[in-house]
Design a protein around this nucleic acid. Structure first.
Lengths: 339, 339
DNA sequence: CCCGAAAACCGAAACGTTTTGGAAAACCTT
DNA sequence: AAGGTTTTCCAAAACGTTTCGGTTTTCGGG
């Protein structure tokens, strides 16, 4: 590996001059700069980012912590789309990405903050965390490490937040069902530890209220955002509340399970049950029936998150919160109430 | 940030002793070690990985270069599954992952090797590269930087290779069609710059030959692994070779396009055309009709790639090539030849 | 109490950069 | 030719570790 010293020797100047020449400082003669540059090229010199970081305290690296990076996570590609967005923007801004993961074992011994401290990332983007994750608390309050949270409501000087308008998304979804004539509408929610679940429940409630339909807590099922959870929820709905004609699900993945349950019991969507999902995962357009759903642009969320973080890192004054809109996609899992 | 020096001051010993105590060397008294450890814990000390790397020349970081990390890449989650596998194994082995991406602009100025050199990753895993990628050539021949390639046949002392048995996979797929009575079987391939395309074509050829069916180069279409390419290929097949009754496609994504073309022209699978795909992407099980396909375990490929790379890094003697098997999944896009 | 060996500790160099605070050289101006 | 600028260069310190080659302390045995 050729270092700055080798170049200095080869060029007959000091290492200071090499450094300043290569970094485009103004106090080096244009001729010597050219000469140094060509020597550097010729010797295949690459600056050692590690050494550089040690002195500058910057790594131009952002840590990305996605809890969904694991074998099951691959079925819906939400995490992946987010990652793609983060990555694309990061590349454009000339940052690299360090992928952290926290398998359950490791989580006990090393907090995110520790991870970030050790590896000296400049900032981090966190997604998929539970609302009461102990380390989240730590990041948000104890340290002032710059980070942006996806779908977790918290902001301060050093913490940004990007999300979609989940209340509005849910309202739109449920209004769609109401517009089709449905009155007994159940909800398959995720779990209490997700901020989006709370918001979507709130939206569901608001939409019902606006339509003068009483809110019935019995009709709320938790599927944990899992396909299997959706299956069981639908089973429950069909047996315990046969008068229900429509369902709003907090994720498409759970709809997939719900559809299976429906089929298992000899029913079909949308004839027996209108269903609107959430996310618009890739499968949604291709499954049978194709899903009516609320699309959220995870790629864009990642992209914006990266932008926001870098803005914060380079101390540009920007808002700490970004809310994207979502969109109702009408396909064929919903239909007017018949009869 | 508390450093080793702060600890030394607080404990009243030299920094050497701190370092050796914390790293578990034997020449430090057990009592002082405990004392130092507790001081370190109390002061929230975290070793600075950057400084450490500078002297040890190791970063415990592996670079991952997946060309498919971008907005389109999200539709099939092959890259993501691979990444999950890499990540899981890397975490277990206590390595971190630095995600490199090469947007086309950047690719011109910085080669992978440069990226790796600069960031001092210990090794790299590359996937999705074209066979004649100029930098691939560089990595494999000019440097002896440790890396493992996914689906790119090349091996030597410092480069490993993990792939699936694509020839066998293709043979299995085509045999399935032949077994159903089909004789005029077209192929929708990816592109010439992919090793897997070559192998799958070879498998197609072998299967035909074994069945005594003449190979007709006219029946080979290239869809570039894209949905749109599959659409156009199927269009071509239907117009130019109406006698074709079955298609083997080198990717499920292209099958999705092909199905659309079929539908557009008023046909259905498998009645008019039996189709077997490749990959078993998530959509394959849910689309209509559900796809008969060759499943390859991308997660496992990533997992094995990480294992192989780390084996190489820690200079364990292991084979440089890993070939995984694939598996025929029979669903409903194929049917016996009727008439 | 002394000696030798083992155990415990330490100073300084090294890793490859950037940056600070000047110093030398070159160029004007009169 | 002197003085003042401006341009160009440089030596040394610093970043936070690890590691080499010792030195000091402790301990057991005679």
């Amino acid at each position: 590996m050729t270092t700055i010293k080798d170049l200095a020797k080869a060029a007959g100047v000091s290492i200071t001059t090499i450094s300043r020449a290569l970094n485009g400082y103004s106090d080096v003669n244009e001729k010597t700069r050219k000469r140094i540059q060509s020597i550097a090229d010729q010797m295949g010199y690459r600056p050692n980012a590690v050494a550089r970081s040690l002195v500058t305290k910057k790594t131009r690296t952002i840590g990305v912590i996605l809890s969904e990076i694991n074998r099951e996570g691959a079925k819906d590609s939400l995490a992946f789309e987010t990652l793609c967005g983060i990555n694309d923007r990061a590349v454009e801004l000339d940052y690299d990405i360090l992928l952290f993961s926290t398998n359950p074992k490791k989580q006990l011994s090393k907090s995110y903050a520790d991870l970030c401290k050790e590896r000296n990332v400049d900032g981090a983007i966190l997604s998929g965390l539970r609302l009461h994750d102990p380390y989240l608390e730590e990041v948000v309050h104890k340290t002032n490490f710059p980070c942006v949270l996806i779908d977790i409501p918290a902001e301060n000087r050093s913490v940004g937040h990007v999300t979609t308008d989940n209340i509005r998304g849910a309202v739109t979804a449920v209004n769609h069902l109401i517009g089709l004539g449905h009155r007994r509408i159940a909800m398959i929610n995720g779990h209490d530890e997700a901020a989006v679940s709370r918001d979507r429940l709130e939206g569901y409630r608001q939409a019902l209220e606006a339509a003068g339909i009483p809110f019935d807590p019995q009709l709320i099922y938790n599927g944990g955002f899992k396909e299997e959870g959706g299956f069981e929820a639908m089973y429950g709905i069909l047996y315990q509340h046969p008068d229900v004609t429509a369902v709003f699900s907090a994720s498409d993945l759970m709809v997939l399970g719900a559809l299976r349950a429906l089929e298992r019991l000899g029913h079909k969507a949308p004839e027996r049950m209108s269903i609107v999902g959430y996310d618009d995962i890739a499968i949604a357009a291709h499954c049978s029936p194709p899903l009516t759903t609320i699309r959220q642009d995870r790629y864009e969320m990642g992209y914006q998150a990266a932008q926001l973080l870098v803005d914060m890192l380079e101390s540009r004054e920007v808002g700490r919160k970004i809310t994207l809109q979502s969109e109702l996609i009408v396909r064929h899992s919903t239909a007017p109430l018949s009869g």
